[in-house]
Design a protein around this nucleic acid. Structure first.
Lengths: 336, 336
DNA sequence: GTGAAAGCGCTAACAT
DNA sequence: ATGTTAGCGCTTTCAC
């Protein structure tokens, strides 16, 4: 408990009766040093409980093995799952993860730099809406960067995106099996949100292919919340347009909101209203009726981001990449 | 874009025609330097876009302003909310957060040290079950540490815990208003889990005060999952013991599982079965019937942990503290 | 009020 | 195969 200053490389060198360079070599380029010496050094390291000082190491190598990840929010199934995937992958690759949710104080960040730039080797930032601030900062710092949710490959930035189109098309087609195109609606999240727009677009195209030109009220935007789903559903009920309708929601929460409102109005799901969500979060499979949804491999998105970032960090000159992750319709009780 | 090596303190000193010491003072002890000089230096800093190198800084000061947080898992409403609170508070206090979920590879960790010890100024670790490994490592590193969910104040470790007893008593009393003590059951999480045990204990005591000595089958342990709730409820139904019963669940997921199983068996909640959950996660207020629950201030737990940790970091000699956060019964539809 | 100089602990040439 | 040495960029005495 009477803890002294931790052992330095010099202490080890002295104890093993070699130079600090040799100790360093044993750690960083084994094979460059004779087996006998290595053994001596290892023993000294063991005995002294030596751990390299990461600051000194970073000062020389300019690497910290810490990666930043900036998310719009850190909360909820969605981000939480993404973060889990990122964390696991980072660990697997020998890196640590520094988190930052942008939500908390937009201006505070501007001032100080939300992530410990200078300390991290690279950063994964999720950009769900047009918003230059953070990634510009990163570019300025010429820090390795990968963006989530936006394809910036053309601008020379590694990207990881979700293939919203495929899943949306599957879901829409599925809805069209039992609902006429003019009775289908996409109830999305925020207008500005990239995913929202991409899903809305694919939804519209699918209807068009089915020979129907979408009316404006068939694609609506709101928020990613249960409340918004309920809100929309209530107005639809008021206009007597929910019974017999098919709904593709922007995420599972919205879908659940629609289900709730429908049930409150005495409408049976799926018999009278068919609902499909998006993301395949836990909520969708927990509630009754279980909600059909377009599965998004959230953990894999996080993992891919980290994998891409690490590759960039260790290989600054590699060509810019864009990983596109698949989505897939999961049919449950809410739509059949 | 043709980014050169970032400006160093030396560059600034040269540009401002002062010594590096002065630049350092301007940054770290303003007031020690003349206004005119300060201005000159500030300008140079501005023009060169100078940012102190955190490694060099850390090497001298032995502080990184990075805090570690180790959670059993990073996923789900519970941890996610806790993490959110921690992140916000850390940012507020000028620190960054390095996350680590212990779940992923117990042995991997052992080898390399899961958190970047040596890089972080302190660590908050959540200990939900007896498990020495991580916190022992931290103690060895004589790193400031705060534990969550376990009161280790007596052992000289700052702690942040939740007052399970109060909420549990409230919940039990509430159940007893409409259910006989012999018909009440606590359906907990893992046996080893500290919260589980504390809640079970308080549950037992409450019944005792109501004049009833709990039977062994009135306190059961399992997992923190919907499935476990269903599982337990099904066996209770099979034994015809669920109708007319009151259930205090170890968390909201278990509670929801019980509700689901009850409904599947044609039992009405709350009329025939009264259910109270724990934690007050989003799930509890989303589903129907809305689930009564004992609210745990998760975000505040995270925030408190960080606050305590920062205090310890900046004040190593302060007396050991234990923050006890209140819990509170929230009555919703599932129990009235 | 400011400068000179000594490290913090490490890695990476360059010698040997 | 190993030792010597020169920094990496910063803070902090100690002089002036």
């Amino acid at each position: 408990m009477a803890n002294r200053r931790p052992a330095s490389i010099q202490d080890v060198a002295t104890a093993a009766d070699v130079s600090t360079a040799t100790v360093s070599r044993v750690l960083n380029s084994p094979g460059l040093v004779a087996p006998a010496t290595t053994a001596k050094v290892q023993r000294a390291i063991q005995e002294l409980g030596y751990k390299p000082n990461l600051f000194a190491q970073g000062l020389m190598t300019r690497k910290s093995h810490v990666l930043g990840i900036a998310l719009p929010d850190i909360h909820g199934e969605f981000y939480s799952e993404l973060l889990r995937g990122a964390d696991a992958e980072a660990r697997r690759l020998g890196y640590h993860l520094l988190v930052a949710s942008e939500a908390h104080d937009a201006r505070e960040q501007e001032r100080e730099g939300s992530l410990a730039f200078g300390l991290i080797d690279g950063v994964a930032v999720m950009i769900t809406e047009p918003n230059e601030s953070l990634w510009r900062e990163a570019m300025d710092a010429s820090l390795p960067i990968v963006v989530l949710d936006t394809d910036l490959q053309a601008r020379g930035v590694d990207s990881v995106v979700v293939d919203n189109a495929v899943g949306t098309r599957q879901a829409t087609a599925h809805l069209l099996e039992s609902v006429a195109p003019e009775r289908c609606t996409f109830v999305g999240g925020p207008t500005e949100n990239f995913d929202s727009r991409a899903r809305a677009l694919a939804f519209g195209e699918s209807l068009k292919q089915a020979g129907w030109e979408v009316r404006p009220d068939q694609v609506v935007y709101g928020r990613y919340s249960v409340e918004w789903g309920q809100e929309w559903a209530r107005t639809a009920i008021a206009a007597d347009r929910l019974a017999g309708a098919g709904v593709l929601a922007g995420n599972d929460e919205i879908a659940f909101g629609v289900v709730l409102a429908a049930q409150d109005a005495g409408l049976d799901v799926p018999r009278q209203v068919r609902v499909v969500g998006f993301d395949d979060t836990r909520l969708a499979s927990l509630v009754r009726p279980r909600i059909s949804t377009v599965r998004v491999p959230l953990a894999e998105v996080g993992a891919s981001a980290i994998r891409t970032l690490v590759h960039r960090v260790e290989n600054r000159e590699a060509p810019t990449s864009c990983v596109r992750l698949p989505t897939e319709l999961i049919i449950r009780e809410s739509s059949r």
